[in-house]
Design a protein around this nucleic acid. Structure first.
Lengths: 139, 139
DNA sequence: TTGCGTGCAAAGGTTTTGCATGGCA
DNA sequence: TGCCATGCAAAACCTTTGCACGCAA
């Protein structure tokens, strides 16, 4: 069984309202603090673990030296059928619903004997906005 | 400039001889210890950082709670042009050279405005061997 | 001799765990 | 009242850093 608590409710609401962002544990704690509902990091980690396990939240580990990022994807099963692009420069996460990419899984399975878990697979790279900025800075 | 030391030589040889494996810092230290050339973790990290930067070794961060994995890919530039599949169950890394997948980058760039860095992108999933084992165990 | 590489220990940061307390049902 | 959730602190872990020493060139 599971109880509903104020912390759990606010944490989930915060993640949900920022579902286009990648959020760190630190940011959650800061927000909760400012929102007048301070929360211990242990609680945040425990809640996030549960949400990840339940499939509401996705966990991303980028380089391992900074903390992990979390993102609300909801119980929308569509998020498990498409891929995600993550911009290394700005951290933006892009949900990619695309016919060609949807064929990748079956292609890899049939031709390469590998069952891709697209919910765990993230394309890393750079979005056009960040690329423009970088090119401008190089001049 | 750079000196050649015994530790550096053995570390690189170990990675090279196990280029089909994903290796942790712990495993490197243990091996060096058993091989009669004990090495400090700091040295291992420093060497690995350099090798990653030079492009000889790839670094993988899976879940963030266990340590990062490293794998020798050599100075073969082909490894930067294709994708990699990593089996979550056995850790095997598969180099995937495939026409369809080579089109992914240009497709994503042209249609979705995103420049994929395939050297940083890994498809996670399960290889057929591990899938068979798992299915057998479920019966 | 020069200065890079190494080893040790300490520090830094993130994440987990134990235990008593608080709060939902 | 039962039991889960929380908070705090401590612990565990991985990784980085500082500094003195060793060793390659």
């Amino acid at each position: 069984m599971s109880y509903n608590t104020r912390q759990k409710e606010i944490l989930l609401k915060f993640l949900h309202e920022n579902s286009s962002e990648h959020i760190t544990v630190q940011e959650i704690c800061n927000f909760m603090n400012n929102a007048g509902t301070p929360v211990g990091t242990a609680t945040v980690y425990r809640q996030l673990d549960r949400l990840v396990e339940q499939g509401f939240v996705r966990k991303y580990v980028l380089d391992g030296r900074s903390g992990a990022c979390y993102q609300y994807t909801g119980n929308d099963s569509k998020c498990f059928e498409h891929y995600h692009l993550k911009c290394i420069s700005c951290g933006k996460l892009i949900h990619l619903d695309c016919h060609l990419l949807n064929e990748i899984n079956s292609h890899i399975f049939e031709n390469h004997g590998f069952i891709v878990d697209s919910s765990k697979t993230v394309f890393y790279g750079q979005c056009v906005e960040c690329n423009k900025i970088q090119k401008g800075a190089e001049k």
